[in-house]
Design a protein around this nucleic acid. Structure first.
Length: 826
DNA sequence: GCAAGGTC
């Protein structure tokens, strides 16, 4: 029995399909899919199934000095126990093992992890390694015809990275967290990738803060030829003889303005016409995909999550890749053929197929990991995927179209006119050959019309304007720009860069989008720059890459590299020791600055945004417990403190971040003063006995209403009320809850809501019996639920037990792969 | 409860 091990389940299934000619059987062991045919079994891992960590005795942050972690043992432990267990069982029965993990450094390490697990149960069994860069018939067959050995040096290079990242990350993270007393969930993290990324954001913020705007002037006028009017802008030659439009002295600007304004014509002195070829874009790697999806409004995280779903369902290729060159076995014509006849994607494919020759564009990166992201040729039915999924799928399809389309051609026309010694220019552009823009409508193709004129012609000059402007600070990085910059700097990987950004949000280092650093982030970067410069610099990764290359080529060993790294960290800690309190004070101060709203009207200390034990946010006084002043915050979203201050109270305004429902709450004190607290209904069932809390009808700043406790935010008991209509409190009382019955007046028929507690209980009961739990799955709507029900699948439980292939046969428009994805999610 | 890297 030969055992084949791949990096992921999806690859295992496709390799089984290729090697067995489609005749494999699948079964599940410990929740792991095993594919079997003619004396072979194939199983997929889930990336790394073991991870590095310190022994247990190092796990209490307060008991262990962070510096001790530098020389602590680093152990490997199973992180995916079910997969490791399955692998051990399968390895015992194997007479030969083939490792077929991804063809890159991390894949070699993952292969080595599998190797160690197999060796642990069988010291003798031959273990070989196959390498292929795309899972296609040709590549896979020839890889298996010509197997190789595992590259232990390359795997060791990866292990060195794991050890160095763990030691530096853990030791410095613990040091900063302990110095500021931030333990538990709010620790202060540092790492080889996250910290240089954070420094990028912080450095840009420093530039913005230090920016001193300068005033300048620009002059515009309208020119007319044969009733066509177009814009012209004043320009001059600066000291380096470059064209410049900005005038830095007001007197000069006025002088030019006066001359232009009093003249009514300008003479054409130069006409320059040229054509420009606009080459089609390169195939998608992960970064460029994220950028293009970003332009459609998707966050990096969301774009990757949708791509992942489209990949698992079989519609697009693997979304994590560095490659921008299509492999030889991708036949563009064949792939275009798959789209012919499609109602919305078909026309473009047919147009492209009419070309004499199809030559795809290529980028600079030709790697062995995976092909560039492209459609597989399998097309989802519109109703089977969400609108977002379809939009992203179409983007991937059209990007593929663009890479095999013709270049576009633009015609640029530059007209220079003169008034006395002053010159004006007009730039026109026209798209003469739309080329790839016809199939890839995501780039702007706006034209700017400038008519044909000849040298010496006199054009009417009107509407001369002098505009005063200010230079602008540099702009904050957007998410996709950050990911591109990380790639340029060589930090992170195609699989992790978008997660790193999420991590910075989670740690409270950045807020909002485009991300803005918090005071805490500024302080962390400050501390790192002063004491551990290496960890915030891209140099650390660059050096590590060199060291890993040295290990991979046999010029250095894992121990050489990790020992040297440990020594560097020892030195850092030697310098840190004396400054612990100073660093801690700075961090603590910054943490408070991030929460500060302004002065407490009752005691003059600071009002801070705080979080209750239940997780909700409120405004509390720093003078607590001496001052017990509190103000409520809305229950939806996470508060973001804005820069603008309320004029009346001197408090910063607050915005509530809640995805699409994000809204500006404003000054919490104004809101509290305005908040309509309506009639009191009765005793609060949660805190009434203990603290005399009462329930009242409340109107929130968002306009929605609820029945809530008067002791909010100390008591968070609340009941929903309808959004519209006047609420009448009747004399009838509910026997069970001793609350008045309510009537809502909206339109002609009053709605007898009754006791708010009874009403809420009934509402909850209805919610829980209605509908099918299948609807919780991605892309499953009422229609699919109905189709599944026809096939005898009425619940998630039914679905988990069903055979994917049978379901695919019975249910129209549902593939076996999709069923497997659902099963995995269920 | 620390990192970064895989993958779901």
């Amino acid at each position: 029995m030969e055992l084949i091990i791949t990096e992921k389940d999806n690859a295992a299934r496709r390799i089984a399909d290729i090697l067995s000619g489609g005749t494999y059987d699948s079964s599940r062991e410990n929740g792991v899919n095993v594919y079997e045919w003619g004396g072979k079994r194939c199983v997929g891992l889930s990336g790394h199934v073991v991870g590095v960590d310190f022994p247990d005795e190092y796990s209490d942050w307060r008991d262990v000095e962070p510096v001790e972690l530098i020389d602590a043992n680093v152990e490997k432990t199973a992180t995916k126990e079910n997969i490791v267990a399955t692998l051990r069982i399968l390895a015992r029965k194997a007479t030969r093992v083939t490792i077929a993990t991804d063809y890159d450094r991390e894949g070699e390490l993952i292969g080595k992890e599998a190797y160690d697990i197999v060796r642990d149960v069988d010291e003798e069994v031959p273990i070989r390694r196959v390498r292929f860069s795309s899972i296609t018939e040709n590549e896979v067959q020839s890889a298996f015809d010509d197997p190789d050995d595992l590259d232990f040096d390359l795997a060791a290079a990866g292990e060195a990275r794991q050890i160095i990242d763990l030691i530096w990350g853990a030791a410095l993270t613990r040091f900063l967290s302990l110095s500021a007393g931030q333990l538990g969930n709010d620790f202060i993290s540092v790492g080889r990738v996250q910290s240089p990324t954070l420094k990028l954001i912080v450095d840009r913020e420093r530039e913005i803060q230090a920016f001193d705007p300068e005033t300048y002037w620009e002059l515009f006028g309208d020119l007319t030829k044969d009733e066509t009017t177009f814009e012209a802008q004043y320009f001059y030659r600066d000291e380096d003889d470059n064209e410049a439009e900005r005038v830095w002295e007001e007197a000069v600007a006025d002088e030019v303005y006066e001359t232009l304004a009093e003249r009514d014509s300008a003479t054409v002195v130069d006409v320059n016409r040229r054509t420009r070829t606009d080459t089609p874009p390169e195939p998608f790697n992960t970064t460029q995909f994220i950028r293009a999806a970003g332009a459609l409004g998707y966050s990096a995280k969301r774009a990757m999550s949708i791509a992942e779903d489209l990949y698992t369902a079989g519609y697009i290729t693997y979304p994590r890749t560095d490659n921008t060159v299509y492999p030889d076995d991708l036949d563009p014509e064949e792939l275009l053929d798959d789209f012919v006849g499609h109602p919305t994607l078909g026309d473009s494919a047919e147009d492209l197929l009419e070309a004499d020759e199809i030559v795809p564009t290529e980028g600079d990166e030709e790697t062995t990991d995976h092909p560039p992201i492209h459609p597989t040729g399998e097309i989802p039915t519109r109703g089977d995927v969400s609108d977002d999924e379809w939009e992203v799928f179409e983007l991937v399809v059209r990007r593929f179209y663009a890479t095999v389309a013709d270049a576009a051609v633009w015609e640029h026309l530059k007209v220079v006119t003169e008034v006395d010694d002053y010159r004006l220019k007009s730039n026109g552009k026209r798209l003469v050959e739309p080329g790839y823009h016809d199939v890839y409508p995501y780039f702007s193709t706006s034209e700017n019309y400038v008519p044909d004129v000849a040298e010496g012609e006199e054009l009417a000059l009107t509407d001369v304007e002098l505009e005063e402007k200010e230079t602008q600070p540099p702009r904050r990085y957007g998410q996709s720009r950050l990911i591109e910059t990380m790639e340029d700097m060589g930090i992170g990987t195609k699989s992790t860069r978008h997660n790193t950004l999420e991590k910075l949000y989670d740690r409270g280092y950045i807020e909002s989008d485009p991300p803005r650093p918090t005071k805490l982030a500024m302080a962390v970067v400050d501390a790192a720059e002063n004491y551990a410069d290496r960890v915030v610099s891209e140099e650390m990764t660059a050096q590590l890459e060199q060291d890993m290359d040295a290990i991979a080529s046999g010029e250095a060993t894992l121990d050489d590299v990790t020992d040297e790294s440990r020594e560097m960290l020892e030195e850092i800690f030697a310098n840190l020791a004396d400054s612990r309190d100073e660093i801690g004070d700075h961090l603590r101060k910054s943490l408070k600055d991030d929460k500060r709203l302004g002065p407490c009207p009752e005691c003059g200390e600071d009002l801070l945004v705080r979080r209750s034990r239940h997780g909700s946010y409120f405004v509390g006084c720093d003078g607590y417990p001496d001052c017990e002043n509190t103000l409520p915050l809305p229950s939806t979203g996470k508060p973001l403190i804005l820069e603008n201050e309320c004029e009346e109270h001197g408090l910063n305004e607050v915005k509530m971040l809640a995805g699409r429902q994000t809204f500006v709450h404003g000054c919490p004190l104004c809101k509290a003063e305005d908040a309509g607290e309506g009639p009191v209904l009765g005793t609060c069932p949660d805190c009434g006995d203990e603290h005399d809390g009462e329930l009242a009808v409340k109107t929130l700043e968002s306009g929605s209403r609820l029945v809530g406790c008067t002791r909010y935010p100390d008591c968070e008991y609340s009941l929903p009320l309808p959004r519209r209509g006047d609420i009448e409190v009747t004399d009838e009382r509910c026997d069970e809850h001793d609350l008045p019955e309510l009537v809502v007046h909206s339109g002609d028929d009053p709605w007898e809501l009754g006791c708010p507690i009874c009403n809420y209980q009934e509402f909850q009961a209805r919610e829980s019996d209605s509908g099918s739990d299948l609807e919780a799955l991605d892309g499953v709507g009422a229609k699919t639920v109905e189709k599944l029900a026809d096939a005898g699948i009425e619940s998630l439980d039914d679905l988990t037990e069903a055979d994917p292939d049978a379901v695919a046969e019975d249910v129209d428009g549902v593939s076996a792969d999709r069923v497997r994805t659902w099963q995995a999610k269920a």
